[in-house]
Each structure stands twice: as structure tokens, then as C-alpha cells.
Write a protein that binds this DNA or RNA. Sequence first.
DNA 1: TCCAAATATTCCTTGACACGTATATACTCC
DNA 2: GGAGTATATACGTGTCAAGGAATATTTGGA
Lengths: 132, 132
Amino acid sequence: METAFEIIAEPNRRAILSLLVSSEQSVGEIERQLRMTQPAVSKHLRVLRDAGFVESTVDAQRRLYRLKPEPFREIDEWLAQFRRFWSAHVDALERYLDRMDEPTSAKGKSTKGKPSKTNARPKPRTNKGESK
Amino acid sequence: METAFEIIAEPNRRAILSLLVSSEQSVGEIERQLRMTQPAVSKHLRVLRDAGFVESTVDAQRRLYRLKPEPFREIDEWLAQFRRFWSAHVDALERYLDRMDEPTSAKGKSTKGKPSKTNARPKPRTNKGESK
DNA sequence: TCCAAATATTCCTTGACACGTATATACTCC
DNA sequence: GGAGTATATACGTGTCAAGGAATATTTGGA
């Protein structure tokens, strides 16, 4: 277990992370919502903490876990190199961006422009053999 | 081997994908650049193709592999829910965006504004027990 | 038709990891 | 300080995927 990518490969861990987006949660709360055994939850949280995805606070006998941003950025940065690529499919990109823009409230204030709308793809290619 | 997340958990596969960003490549080319054995490359490509990350074209005895965008979008969409979260750390966000902007050439033309600069985080929290 | 080059597939072994059960540790309250 | 709650850890087990070696398959060319 090393990279952030290996960590999020596990479905239960992704579920835990998704749960923590809304707010911090205790082990027991996670256990109930995800219908997992308590040791399973604790073990996944251990892995997540070691990898920097979460941190914990002691509250009586409970431990409250909450997200930490760094590993997510790491993944996002890796993904960035492909973002340039998939932007080539402009129509789909537009749909994607439309969904992304102002998902909650967030008004105006947008500066800087999008992360690169450039078409970095060389040739459109004329498929000849095509897959398989 | 099912989800896109499991696919990119493997370092060699991530390396292959990164290679293919620049242009399509044959198995032999990948083999040499990554110093992997030929069967290893073929096997990983098989997995990548089954998962929709790449497609192949026949060129004489060679197979040319190139990227397909869909699975990357899937990952990105999962990541999106956390993007709102990590945006809370504004200062760090700014650094991040500065790195993102116009990574290659890509001039002006920016519309629509960034994918959400919103601070969706409830309380800044006053750490009391702090990690571990 | 036979050979060589490029790639795919099969078989086998090994190691990692997710899970469950049982147990240990920590903390609260009476 | 003993009982109860909440969480962590230890241990044993089964599964599955990655890697290597050997072999099959496909295609081009003499």
C-alpha cells in the first residue's frame, strides 16, 4: 500500500471518503451507514490516515475522522496530463464543463480561465484496422 | 479487475498511459521505453483495453495503441466531489491553479471560469485533540 | 511455403491484501 | 475501581493479480 492510487482502488475506502465529504464522522457512524464490520472500518481508516487522506480527532471514546486534501490533489495532478487529451473531444468537454460550473451557489468572481482548452491531439486519424 | 480505479492502481499501467499521452505507440516501443518484458506490456494493454482506457489499430505485425477518454472522465467525476472540499484551502488552491493555467502554449480564449472556487466547508474548526 | 518479426496467451508461482473472529486498549460514568 | 462503550490490533485464511518462462498466433516477405 503506497500510492494514493492504490488506496482509492478499494471500493469501501472510496465509500468512506465519500461519506466524509459532507462532514466528519466517527467510526461507529461510518460502520452503520456502510454496513461494514467495525474492524473493517478501523482498518480502512488506518490505511487512509497513513496515506494522508484523513486525520482524526479524539472526542471521548470516539474518534472523529475528516478529510485532508493533499492526496486528492496528487491524483488530480496526475489526471491533468490526460485532461488536455480528452479536451480534444470538444463537444463532450462542453457538457462536462457545464455540469462543473457553479455546482452549488458560488457566483461570479471567476477569473483565470479554464485549465487549458487546447487541442493537443496531433492527427484526427482515419481508423483503418480499428480495435481488436 | 473491474473499476477504473483498480486499473490505474498499477504503476506500470499508469506509466503506459502517460506514454500514450504524447502519441500512439506500438507494443515494442512501450516495451523499450519502460524496460518491461513484452508479455508484461501485452498483458497490461489487454487490461487497459478491456477497461476502455485504450484502443488498438493493426499496422502490419504491429498494434498501435492510443488513449480513449471515457474512463478518465469517470475518475475525474468521482474526484469532483472532493474538489469542492479541497477548495476550502484557498491559498493552496491558488498555487494549484497557477500551475494549471496554460501549462503548454494555449493562449487567451478562456471563458466560463473555473470549475468552482466555492468554499463549501462548514466550520474552519479549532483542533482540539488533533491527529493520533 | 517457409522463415522471421511482432504480439498475444497460457501456466505456474508468489506475495499482497481484504475479511472475519477474537482480543486488547482507551475512556466514561457510577 | 468495575462495568460498559468505542475503537484498535492480532492472527489465520482465501482470493486474486502481477511477473516470468514458454508457447501460440498473426502478418509480411523471400
